[in-house]
Design a binder for these strands. Structure first.
Length: 664
RNA sequence: GCUGGUGUAGCUCAAUCGGCAGAGCAGCGCUCUUGUAAAGCGCAGGCUGGGGGUUCGAGUCCCUUCACCAGCUCCA
């Protein structure tokens, strides 16, 4: 029996997120603490966070600590749940497929995966839905045993011995890179895995696993190494959560811009025209040109000057810029005309970027420091031969139009120009009600100075200027070291599509390289020649990708000012077609895009059609309306109707469009 | 580019073991002349992505090619 004194020393103090403190014996587990707080919490607890480190619930706590109990409602709680699910998947695969070699199996944002090599297993790698269902069933069966996940610290030698005996080359490679003393195994039932953890107390919680898809994935992300089969899944503690998740995936598919683009007749692709070459249908073109007009107006107000350049340029242009042949793999093959007297290939290249052309416009005349900044803007279409497996919808294409502009300025003007572009980009995103974006600053890796053009002082000054510009504009931006292009630091705006994939939209990039290569100059106040700095910027990025993401963002319900068809007039019968046309003319006078449905369908049918095609405003007109010179207004998505005098309505609607474009 | 999957009418999908390619919607024609989410009848619509092979016979099996989908790699 220990004396009182020792017992005192064996107490630890646990501080909870709300600031309250509890005393527990040394070696109490996270589960003990959760249970002490409440039985409900203990039941829901998945893991604990001890002094900022996520740990197993049943791991003893040896000293005073800040502690947070993690449940399904915490992102980190879900991660533990899914990580444990990945181990369960591995165990199921081993049970069903025998000698499989495991790569890594981490949790991800919305589920988990495991990379597996099936080449030595007794049967073919899983490929069908049925195979996945079989694995799922096995997982459920294994989970039902409700065995604990046991943590076991091992030495590097022990770890290596275990996986060598097992014949697990990928695991051996992972162990080689770990430091002795930091290695742990986790074991559930018959299955042991190299793993940092943490994990759930036991398998029983994973009652609803769902395997979603399979795909190849290179070992360690290196395309020169073996390709493993990656199995993606997700899992839930309750059926309701699984159902909700599947429903959410279904809804995401409904928002997919490829589906909506076809249904709303915005754009199309043709195998005969070529992969990744979108064709804009009349409605999509209207949408696109409305966006272009909006941006162009903004840019004119900010001192941008419009330019237009051709879609091709001589190879020499791209030799000077460095695009040819350096990026040859991602360019369409050049149009060759033969060799010059020096044996150099001559010909033309479809332009992969607009900048070389804009640079030549800058060089058209000698610029004074008084001219700067020179801002040349063009909706410039470029062509890049993206890898075939990369193409998809409008988000990754081979021919696309950038809302491109190049700013030529002095180093001192960089910060102000960045601020203006940030302001413009935020204004554009705001007008489109786009709030779910992230900003990323990409800086150089100072340890690899040789990878970048321009001296360290230049880069430091530029990175400071950009960082300050973002801060002064109230833009929260993540800084990524080593992500800069070789020619300069940049600021990107990232968004996610309906399926949660991240895409880069807007970009602002500083460039030290092209001014050098093209020997750009301006005459300073000192009457000497100086080198300007160049900024590439595109608030939308590419119109194709931007519109693709925009479609998914609003689910095809475009704001009134952007809707290709803003108003559809629905006469109740033939006798009212004339009045319908008069209504249309009145709206068109106000620059509103209005059509008349003069088919012989019933009113109910016409309404259904207009609703399905997401036309924002429907006007039903018949005898009553013609008599009183009114329209019966119905808005998309709302069954309500409201009769208004025609002229008042046209006026009000035009004002609504105006207000939206002003961003209010 | 890589791994896996999928290609049937404009769209969404059927077609048992290899045995006559089918439906709904859309389209067109006729009837109806309509009052807030699908009127009725009829007609037409296909080289089953392309090419090759196996077979008495291929949408179905094999090879090849193209496109699309998921992921990986790449993304000036």
């Amino acid at each position: 029996m220990p004396d009182v004194q020792t017992q005192q020393q064996q107490k630890i103090t646990i501080r909870l997120p709300d600031g309250s403190e509890r005393t527990h014996p040394t070696g109490a587990t996270g589960y003990d603490v959760a249970e002490d707080i409440g039985a409900g919490l203990a039941r829901d607890a998945l893991a604990v966070k001890v002094n900022g480190e996520v740990r197993d619930l049943q791991r003893p706590i040896e000293e005073d600590a800040d502690l947070e109990v993690l449940t399904w409602d915490d992102a980190e709680g879900k991660m533990v749940f899914w990580h444990s699910s990945a181990h369960l998947l591995a165990e199921a695969l081993e049970a069903l497929y025998g000698d499989v070699k495991f790569g890594v199996g981490p949790p991800i944002e919305d589920g988990f995966y495991y990379d597996v090599d099936f080449s030595d297993s007794g049967r073919d790698a899983p490929s069908s839905e049925d195979d996945l269902a079989e694995i799922e069933e096995k997982m459920q069966e294994l989970a039902a045993r409700d065995v604990p996940y046991e943590r076991e610290p091992v030495s590097k030698d022990e770890a290596m011995r275990y996986f060598t005996e097992k014949g697990a080359p990928y695991k051996q490679e992972l162990i080689e890179e770990l430091e002795d003393g930091t290695i742990t195994f986790y074991r559930q039932g018959e299955f042991t895995d190299l793993c940092r953890g943490p994990h759930l107390p036991s398998t029983g919680a994973i009652t609803y696993p769902k395997l979603l898809s399979m795909a190849g994935a290179y070992w360690r992300g290196d395309e020169d190494r073996a390709q493993l089969t990656r199995i993606y899944g997700v899992s839930f503690p309750k059926k309701k959560l699984l159902d909700e998740h599947l429903e959410m995936l279904e809804k995401a598919r409904e928002r997919d811009h490829r589906k909506l683009g076809r249904e709303l007749e915005l754009f199309t692709f043709s195998e005969t025209v070529g992969a990744g070459l979108p064709m804009w249908l009349p409605k999509g073109t209207t949408l696109r040109e409305t966006l272009e007009g909006f941006l162009q107006q903004e840019q004119l107000e900010r001192g941008y000057e419009p330019v237009v350049t051709p879609h091709i340029g001589r190879l020499d242009l791209y030799r000077t810029s460095g695009h040819y042949p350096y990026y040859r793999d991602s360019q369409f093959p050049p149009i060759l005309e033969g060799e010059d007297e020096d044996g150099e290939e001559q010909g033309y290249l479809l332009k992969p970027m607009n900048c070389p052309h804009h640079v030549m416009i800058y060089k058209n005349k000698l610029h004074s420091y008084r001219d700067l900044p020179v801002r040349l803007a063009e909706f410039g279409t470029v062509y890049r031969h993206e890898q075939s497996g990369e193409l998809g919808g409008l988000t990754r294409v081979r021919g696309f139009t950038q809302d491109d502009a190049h700013v030529f300025c002095t180093p001192e003007q960089v910060k102000a120009e960045f601020k203006d572009v940030i302001d413009l980009t935020l204004k554009v995103l705001d007008a489109l009600d786009f709030d779910a974006f992230e900003a990323q600053l990409s800086f150089r890796d100072p340890d690899e100075a040789e990878k970048y053009v321009g001296g360290a002082e230049k880069w430091d000054a530029a990175e400071d200027a950009i960082r300050e510009a973002a801060a002064e504009m109230g833009l929260v931006a993540q800084e990524e070291v080593g992500e800069a292009a070789f020619y300069g630091p940049k600021l990107d705006f990232m968004v996610q599509d309906a399926l949660g994939r991240a895409w880069q939209l807007g970009t602002v990039q500083l460039d030290y390289n092209l001014p050098e290569r093209f020997d750009l100059e301006y005459v300073g106040a000192d009457d000497e020649r100086h080198r300007p700095v160049m900024i590439h910027r595109a608030p939308f990025g590419s119109l194709e990708r931007f519109i693709g993401v925009l479609i998914e963002h609003c689910g095809g319900d475009f704001p009134l000012w952007l809707a290709p068809e803003q108003v559809r007039i629905l006469p109740v019968g033939d006798d009212f077609h004339d009045y319908a046309r008069r209504v249309q003319a009145t709206l068109r006078e106000k620059d509103l895009r209005a059509t008349v449905d003069d088919s012989d369908a019933t009113v109910g049918y016409k309404i259904r059609e207009a609703e399905t095609q997401k036309v924002p405003v429907m006007l039903v007109v018949g005898g009553r309306e013609e008599e009183a010179q009114t329209v019966a207004v119905r808005r998309h998505g709302s069954g309500e109707q409201d009769t208004q005098p025609l002229d008042d309505f046209a006026e009000a609607l035009a004002e609504e469009v105006e207000a939206q474009m002003r961003g209010s």
